[in-house]
Amino acid sequence: MPLLPETNNLGFDRENMVKMRDVCKTYAGGVVALDHFSLDVRRGEVLVIIGPSGAGKSTLLRCLNGLELIDSGSIVIDGIPLDKNEANQLAIRRKIGMVFQSFNLFPHLSVQENINLAQRLVQKKSPAQANTITRDLLHRVGVLDKAMRYPDELSGGQQQRVAIARALALYPKIMLFDEATSALDPEMIGEVLDVMRNLAAEGMTMLVVSHEMGFAREVSDRVVFMEEGRKVEEAASAKFFTQPQQARTREFLSQIL
């Protein structure tokens, strides 16, 4: 008999970090963003989600950390169900780090203060404790020399690396990347992808919405192709790019590759 049951009635699952079942989400105005969508993400897995715009990719990520409320279905993150219980919602938000297309750094705070803020408010760390973690993270993403600067004094690539450091400062178990490189000038995409690549190598569970097919092929374990809120195809990344099963997937790949 295994020491821990594979699942209990809370839906705890040793294997899966994310468990979505039959999730539906329709926006006011009738746009269907997720249509009975189910997805499991294993611990340490890097999952890339691709699809045309309006496919529901961003909505998928935003539902996971409660930025959007789902209409029906269930989401369980690291054993905690995402439901009406506010304590559960908060616990889930604190397990998940999110990186946005438009960085969303706080413009009135310096880089260091941006990263310290949630450590101080959410984790109640002392300024010294927070500073140590912040400086270590800034070093890891290569912008330690900008610690005292303000976001508008940084390039887009630097801002996005700071945003990643800000999310990592809370030691999340899952990182969500919502088109993290789409707003960047081409020469800055590489530096952000490098940071993401290192993170994947360290074993972080990552859900990445991206148009960077090179990154998807090289770094991800699995690729999901979505359209109109549904999963069209899902496969290990090597197989996905070399032997796509669905005609629609082949068509999409031929358009963007």
């Binding site: 930025l67 938000r93 946005f100 969303n104």
Partner: peptide, 11 residues
């Protein structure tokens, strides 16, 4: 986006 950043940081 500022609200969304706050939300995702658990504030």
């Amino acid at each position: 986006g500022q609200w969304e950043a706050c939300h995702s940081l658990g504030l």
